[in-house]
Design a protein around this nucleic acid. Sequence first.
DNA 1: GAAAATATTTACGCATCTGATATGTCGACC
DNA 2: GGTCGACATATCAGATGCGTAAATATTTTC
Lengths: 232, 232
Amino acid sequence: MKILSERPSILVVEDDREISRFISSSLSAAGYLPYVAANLVDARKLFWEVRPELAILDLGMPDGDGKDWIAELRQRSDVPVLVLSARQSEKEKVACLDCGADDYLAKPFGVEEMLARVRTALRRAAMMSLRDHVYDVSGLRIDLAAGTVTLNGKLVKLTPIEYKLLMMLAQHPGKVITYRQLLTSVWGAEYLDETHYLRIHMGRLRAKLEAVPAEPRFLLTDPGIGYRIAAS
Amino acid sequence: MKILSERPSILVVEDDREISRFISSSLSAAGYLPYVAANLVDARKLFWEVRPELAILDLGMPDGDGKDWIAELRQRSDVPVLVLSARQSEKEKVACLDCGADDYLAKPFGVEEMLARVRTALRRAAMMSLRDHVYDVSGLRIDLAAGTVTLNGKLVKLTPIEYKLLMMLAQHPGKVITYRQLLTSVWGAEYLDETHYLRIHMGRLRAKLEAVPAEPRFLLTDPGIGYRIAAS
DNA sequence: GAAAATATTTACGCATCTGATATGTCGACC
DNA sequence: GGTCGACATATCAGATGCGTAAATATTTTC
């Protein structure tokens, strides 16, 4: 259970001592509550401990590429990530943004701009509705945080694609997720036309989760629009 | 003959002919459906007609400051705005972001970066659109976020076209939506003359939603203008 | 490297949706 | 009362979209 502090907490992942000092004192002065990690291992740990409302990440970490961490994070959290980097290359920017980063700020940058982008990201995040972390409807239990699925108490094994699909649906119980949204988040933006894949993998999910796949109780089709998982 | 345009529409507000050409052709190539306005007056008009999923705005418009338009837009819509500008000053960036812009890209910029930022903004917008917006009038309940329609508690099944039509109306309860707006947003700009389609599908919607289709309580006709859904 | 698991391609049956055409209704106007 | 224009409804054949099954390709695992 997260304690509601009035100051939004922000995780700063940055190995350069001087820069991280500078950033966190700027954030402090602006009314935020910064936590600092100097490498990815600490960042991972600290993230789930603090559950910050935003993460600021320097790409060049001693123990790995920050991009991997973003991708990993995106599986489990919607926390906005603001990337800082000395790398100016367009390729790098594109890769980060497509990875799930919310914004990319090339060094050197002005403090004011950074703070403005932080405000923007937090403003957006505040608009997002809070979501449950467990979907539990008549025998089907999906633990979004742990990433596990049980049917009548028995663990169900899912393939990676099935998993992503189901998580996407379970994050918004009762709401239609359009073909576009599903294809984008599972396969990527360049697969918008392959609604076909969805039919096949939804079929497989139904085979695993539904007693009578032809009459689904959980995984419902909204013809022409998308799919949705039955709400409690 | 069909074409329920699945391509996300993007409004480009840019007065420089050459730049707007360049941007819109890049967007087209990337699978989007760009609409171009060369000044703020047109932008205002086009925006509400097309209802794009994102707006790209050049700050320096001949008929006013783009910032004002952003602020104005924010009153009525959550559509993300990506600002392009030749002005590099940090003050300007901060002002725009705090005004409600989602992102700020200083010229000159790479196409790839622009497209990546567009993708990022659209990805976020897709998540946001899952927030709750509900039309609920005497037995008819339209959950815009979930995309579901219930009549006296019973779920009503709609076809894709019926769905789009109804959502368009329900987004603005009590307001007349013109034939043009409906045709544009459901079938596309090239169907402006087929008001005929509207009659057929409005008829089908009434058959599903009205107790006495001939005396509609929800789906009202404004002869010569358009249709509207009864306000709460 | 071989075997197993997973993903993609291809094909087809079936139900549903769509828009053309035709006809019916209502009110305005002369 | 009749005509006209705008809107509503009925019917129906063709198009489209969904689900499934099987064959093939790819990735993972040991």
